[in-house]
Design a binder for these strands. Structure first.
Ligand SMILES: Nc1ccn([C@H]2C[C@H](O)[C@@H](COP(=O)(O)OP(=O)(O)OP(=O)(O)O)O2)c(=O)n1
Ligand SMILES: [Mg+2]
Length: 1222
DNA sequence: ATCCTCCCCTAC
DNA sequence: TAAGGTAGGGGAGGAT
């Protein structure tokens, strides 16, 4: 039965596959390769015309099927739209204020429809309390935070109240109405009859408000509201879900009654195996595994010894055998668990691979088609992509809100806020944290109310929305569905399935052994995305702050929100508002998605997560401080977020403890010695329920990558090269999608281990492999960051070629880009512009560059770019292009030993003799029996285990990695063989020598290979930007202060106008710019200036540690951290504005002025330390060696703030603030 | 001390 | 059939 269903769900149209299945004899060992057996499928398309229909089409439900769109930057069809108008609830009021201000500007003031109306809001409402409050106030009403006999409240707003409560109010002569009354009145801008909105005793919480009330589009601002088109909180939408959800095989499972048989025996602690690197499927493989260390770890047999043979940086290895440790076993292992795969080498795959045609249709042998369909169907790829998109959306919404907040504040919204104002928006004025992660709330940790929200069995839950008949049954989401021995991975298992021991990450085959009647359902990526968007939209309405964790999970700070609820309640009593809010959120999500989420609440993130675990499924749980000790004590170590198998084992091996309670006895010091400073401290604190980690919602992206470690099967180098180029194109797309460009890249390679079977246990999996990485600098022609697919692709291919691997042995390829610059501030200019900038740049650059680029950088090595190569491309640190590219004279200048090494390496390289050492490898422990169970699961500890090299191995590993026979850097840099040429020469170790060279090469590449004097290079696109900006009539200073997206947008508009010859008419941006400059133009910048302000006591210039006021000191520290935090990308608009607001405010008071001077001086000092350049007016180019423009942005920010402060000071004292020279 | 590079580890 | 990606915290050890 299952099979028929499966067929219906997935179908199986691949004749070759079917044949392979049929022909395979399970009980026997592999059959002899019957070549030529496979014939082409009946109705198959020609090989090339259509790449491979089976990958794209197929009987899969059209719904979830990826409808890839062109605009999607990745193959994924599941990008999120933007939250666009969504805002954090907390900021909603500001939006309204804005609207109001705007209206006032136009002379259109909101009609005071609520004049004479005094309102009190009770309990949870939709829209939220604060939104209502703002609406009421904006339209002339009075808002009361308390309800006592003295207040003149006329109306009580509530979505739901107990009959008793309603009566009580009515007796007090209060009108009890629903929120819609407010909303509708605002929408119509006319006071509606309250009688039409009275709250009836019987009314259920189904506040219609969500349905429609929230949208007060009438006011001209919908900022605080969920847009109707987007999946919103309101209408239970049928939208996407329905649109896509064809009723299709909904009745597929109908055959079986909803009876679930009981699981054989709940597995408590399945062995854990897999790990990111070590997958359970590969455990069976290795026969003669690496030797085992005392602790059950596998010792890495040292490959590539001194002979220079290659050594992997890593080897994907065995998940350590369960309980193999000495003490082991605290957890009784279920002895009967199915293994990930039944065979060491997948017989079906082996057979299919015999067919060239099949390979070209289903593996990397067909780069373009394979990559595309692979990413479209990779759940892990989607998970990662969604995560970063969500983070970006949250960051955007936040930035937008903050901007609005600033505007509202600045514009003087000093209008007297009605009476109370418990909630006051003072947040906007306080010098709140600049850097989010900073100790914004030290000391008040206990006051935080953190909520962790996570869907229960997300993929399954989403899938069951359209398959109600499967609810209550053991269901799993995975590809395929056929095959008794399927190696298809289970992305999500229902709670019913979990009772059988099935876990996320297991193979379907394993699951079948645990539960023969397991019901697999297909993926529906589009639906997950849509649900997630609704989910986040809902959360945003209730959170003070929000951190996106993943597509189905988020962390909220609801401290303020809960405090407000409490204050607004006339009868706080002992109600747990946090829990009520959690349930409210659960209701909302259920209404909108039909899925259950669980909520964990506590006073810090770690505990909130633990609370969620306890709550699941379908519940909420508030872990109170008093319950923490007893709650944590019995949990296993892995229950701490961030503690995986490796750390758990280290602790277990060292202390022999299994639970958090036992860990309490270990000293912090011993933990730090074992795990490292930070990790040890974290664990020590965690065990005590301590976690001061703040929510992180706006961290800048540090890398962008794309990798494929599945289905990689090349027949020759041509295919490999094509694949690499294709992957580079993918990375390029991703970079462009986030407006980033990089200056450094790393190629990640997986190679089949010699002892691993040709075909892995997992169908087309990578199997047991060795990992190798190689890095290189990349740049556009001007030494700037790049996102060019060709540049990245060529560099990647060169790096790969340098390894000289047999293409047939490759099993994984990845390209990662680092050292990112934002496009807005990086290069993006057409040639012409570049040239323009060049002039300016060289002018400025020549003066300072020489200093930064010492002779060694520039003169030691010069590499001429082959004329054929586009001048734009430069490689770097990593291998030298070729012997012909090395300037002989430069070579001659090198120490003899080093020179020899270089030549040797080049020679070897040419001979293709070099064998790199893997940095890592993945393998299987020999001890693992084929039928043992290993399983993976994420939830509990069973999954991933990655085996780190044994201590000794690790060290050696590390050492060898660095030296690889020779210094790793050198090796990399020169693509040379591992031979440890002994050159240790005078004084320097070989490694040191290599590094030395590397260093010389590195900077050199990023900049050109030539001397700056010679060619006046060193121009920086940043300069370009400034020059261009000026050419466009824009003040660079002002421009830099704008949010990146605005910068980009304005830039393109201006360029367009310019090219269209419209330049003379002022564009919106130009107007803004001129306005800005005139507004703050003040000569105050000069370091010297008379002062009225007392000179700060200490000269931080010389002694930064001197303190004056601890408060000042705190601010200074914050500034220091801030600069450090944003050192590579410059400060954000919101941050600068905040510090500016703070300083201006301080400057307005006598006491504060002194502090302002101190802080400004300190800030300047920090900037001077980091970016030499002074804030001199004449020069505005501060570009560091890497071409980064952060320094420029920082100085601009400093100058702007200084200007604003000066304005204030000038008004009071007649002249600007004097900071003195130093 | 602190930075930088090259990993390892973890999470979903 | 099957889709084992990817970003960021942080540690080790060398450079500065
Ligand atoms: N190894 C994994 C783990 C998770 N996921 C996907 C599917 C999950 O549904 C989703 C969310 O992961 P969770 O860890 O939150 O797991 P579930 O939501 O499935 O279950 P629960 O949260 O109830 O434990 O991510 C996956 O594809 N592979
Ligand atoms: Mg979940």
């Amino acid at each position: 039965m299952a099979s028929s269903q499966e067929r219906e769900l997935w179908g199986s149209e691949d004749p070759d596959y079917l044949e392979a299945l049929v022909n395979y004899t399970f009980s026997s060992e592999k059959k002899s390769p019957s070549v030529g057996t496979k014939r082409k499928r009946t109705a198959s398309p020609e090989p090339e015309s259509d790449v491979n229909p089976t990958l794209f089409t197929g009987p899969r439900p059209p719904k979830e099927t990826v409808s890839s769109k062109n605009e999607n930057y990745v193959y994924g069809a599941a990008n999120f739209g933007g939250f666009g108008e969504y805002m954090f609830r907390k900021r909603a009021k500001l939006q309204i204020q804005n609207v109001q201000l705007a209206d006032e500007d136009e002379g259109t003031k909101k009609p005071q429809i609520f004049k004479g109306v005094a309102i009190y809001v009770n309990g949870f409402t939709d829209p939220p309390f604060q939104d209502l409050r703002e609406m009421i106030m904006a339209y002339g009403g009075v808002f009361h935070a308390y309800l006592d006999r003295k207040s003149m409240v006329t109306h009580v707003i509530a979505s739901q109240l107990t009959p008793a409560k309603i009566l009580e109010y009515q007796r007090a002569k209060l009108k009890v109405v629903k929120p819609e009354w407010i909303v509708k009145s605002v929408e119509a801008e006319v006071l509606q009859r309250w009688q039409d909105y009275t709250l009836q005793p019987g009314a259920v919480g189904t506040v219609a408000a969500l349905g429609q009330g929230t949208d007060f589009s009438g006011g001209g601002s919908r900022t605080a509201v969920v847009d109707v088109d987007q999946p919103s909180i309101r209408a239970p939408q049928k939208t996407l879900a329905e649109a896509f959800a064809s009723r299709k095989h909904s009745q597929a499972a109908s055959s079986k009654p909803p009876t679930v048989q009981k699981p054989p025996e709940p597995i408590q602690d399945p062995l854990e195996l897999t790990s990111p690197e070590m997958y359970a499927s590969d455990l069976l493989n290795t026969t003669p595994g690496p030797s085992r260390s005392p602790h059950g770890r596998i010792l890495n047999k040292h490959l590539g010894g001194s002979d220079g043979s290659p050594s992997p940086t890593r080897r994907v290895t065995d998940p350590n055998t369960p309980g193999s440790g000495p003490n082991a076993s605290a957890a009784p292992e279920p002895t009967e668990q199915p293994s990930y795969a039944m065979y060491d080498s997948n017989p079906v795959a082996a057979k299919l691979m015999e067919s060239t045609e099949w390979r070209r249709q289903h593996t990397s042998a067909n780069p373009q088609a394979f990559t595309e369909s692979y990413f479209q169907n990779s759940r892990l790829h989607h998970l990662s992509a969604w995560k970063s998109e969500l983070r970006q959306l949250v960051a955007d919404a936040r930035e937008q809100a903050e901007k609005a907040e600033e505007l509202a504040t600045q514009s003087g919204d000093s209008k007297p806020t009605m009476d109370v104002d418990v909630t006051s928006m003072q947040g906007a004025r306080l010098p709140r944290m600049l850097v989010p992660k900073r100790d914004k709330g030290k000391g008040k940790e206990s006051d935080r109310v953190i909520m962790h929200v996570d869907f229960d069995s997300f993929f399954v839950a989403a899938g069951l929305v359209d398959r109600p008949q499967l609810k209550g049954k053991p269901v799993v989401v995975c590809h395929s569905g056929a095959g008794k021995v399927s190696t298809s991975e289970i992305a999500s298992a229902s709670y019913e399935a979990r009772t059988f021991g099935i876990k996320n990450g297991m193979s379907l085959g394993q699951a079948r052994q645990l539960c023969p009647n397991i019901q697999p359902i297909p993926y529906e990526f589009e639906k997950y995305k849509a649900f997630s968007l609704k989910f986040y939209t809902i959360l945003m309405a209730f959170a003070d702050d929000l951190q996106a964790v993943s597509v189905d999970e988020a962390i909220l700070d609801v401290s303020e929100r809960v405090a407000q609820l409490k204050m607004a309640s006339d009868d706080p009593g002992d109600r747990d508002f946090a829990k009520e809010l959690a349930e409210h959120i659960r209701d909302k999500v259920r209404e909108n998605t039909g899925c259950e989420v669980s909520v964990g609440i506590s006073h810090n993130i770690m505990l909130a997560r633990m609370a969620t675990r306890h709550a699941k499924p379908a519940k909420s749980y508030h872990l109170l401080p008093g319950d923490v000790p007893s709650h944590l004590a019995p949990l296993e170590i892995k229950a701490i977020h961030g503690v995986g198998r490796s750390i758990r084992d280290k602790i277990r091996d060292k202390f022999g403890v299994e639970t958090l309670g036992e860990l309490l006895e270990k000293s912090k010091d011993s933990l730090q010695r074992l795990l490292g400073e930070k990790t040890g401290d974290k664990i020590w604190k965690a065990v005590r329920g301590i976690d001061d980690t703040p929510l992180e919602s706006d961290k800048p992206r540090k890398s962008v990558s794309a990798e494929v470690n599945y289905g990689i099967r090349f027949e020759n180098n041509e295919q490999a090269e094509a694949f690499v180029m294709n992957l580079a194109t993918e990375v390029s797309k991703r970079l462009k999608a986030v407006s980033k460009r990089g200056r450094f890249m790393t190629l990640k390679i997986m190679v089949r281990r010699a002892d691993a079977p040709l075909e892995a246990a997992k169908f087309l999996g990578h199997g047991s492999v060795d990992c190798y990485n190689k890095s290189a600098s990349i740049s556009d022609g001007r030494g700037g960051a790049t996102d060019d697919a060709v540049i990245i692709g060529e560099e990647s291919w060169r790096l790969l070629k340098a390894f000289n691997f047999d293409p047939k042995e490759l099993r994984g390829i990845g390209i990662q880009i680092q050292k990112l610059d934002n496009v807005a501030s990086a290069t993006e200019l057409p040639r012409g512009q570049a040239r323009l900038s060049f002039r300016t740049a060289s002018k400025v650059g020549e003066a300072k560059r020489p200093i930064e680029f010492s002779d060694e950088d520039v003169e030691i090595l010069e590499i001429d770019r082959p004329p054929s190569a586009p001048p734009s491309r430069s490689s770097n640190i990593a291998d030298l292009p070729s012997a012909s590219q090395i300037d002989q004279s430069v070579l001659d200048s090198l120490p003899e030993d080093i020179k020899r090494e270089i030549l040797d390496s080049l020679a070897q390289n040419n001979q293709k003799v070099i064998q790199p050492k893997p940095t890592r490898s993945k393998t299987v422990p020999s001890s693992r029996l084929r039928n043992e169970i290993d399983l993976t699961a994420e939830g509990d500890g069973s999954e991933t285990r990655s085996q780190s090299l044994p201590p000794s191995g690790s060290q050696t590993e590390k050492g060898s990695a660095d030296m690889l026979g020779v210094p790793q850097h050198f090796t990399k840099a020169v693509s040379m063989s591992p031979t440890k040429a002994q050159a240790g020469g005078p004084g320097i170790s070989k490694a040191a020598a290599a590094r030395h060279i590397t260093k010389q090469l590195a900077p050199k590449h990023k900049v050109p290979f030539v001397s700056p004097n010679k060619h006046g290079l060193f121009k920086d696109r940043t300069d370009v930007d400034d020059v261009e900006l000026r050419a466009l009539g824009v003040d660079p200073l002002f421009f830099r202060e704008l949010p990146k997206d605005i910068q980009k947008e304005q830039l393109s508009i201006l360029r367009q106008q310019r090219s269209a010859g419209t330049r003379n008419s002022l564009g919106p941006f130009e107007r803004a710019a001129s306005r800005a400059s005139s507004r703050s133009r003040s000569p105050s910048l000069g370091p010297l200036r008379t002062t009225t302000a007392p000179i700060p006591v200490a000269s931080y210039t010389t002694l930064p540690q001197i303190k004056k006021l601890s408060k000042v000191d705190d601010v200074q520290n914050m500034v220091r951290d801030w600069v450090k935090y944003r050192k590579t990308e410059g400060p954000s608009f919101a941050e600068v504005d905040r510090i500016c607001t703070y300083l201006v405010k301080c400057a307005g008071s006598d006491i504060g002025l002194e502090n302002v001077t101190s802080i400004m001086r300190y800030w300047r000092m920090i900037l001077r330390e980091k970016w030499r350049d002074e804030e001199g007016v004449s020069k505005d180019e501060i570009i560091d060696v890497d071409g980064n423009t952060a320094g420029l942005a920082w100085w601009n920010a400093f100058r702007n703030v200084k200007r604003k402060v000066d304005e204030v000071v000038k008004k009071r004292f007649g002249c600007g603030l004097a900071l003195g020279r130093t």
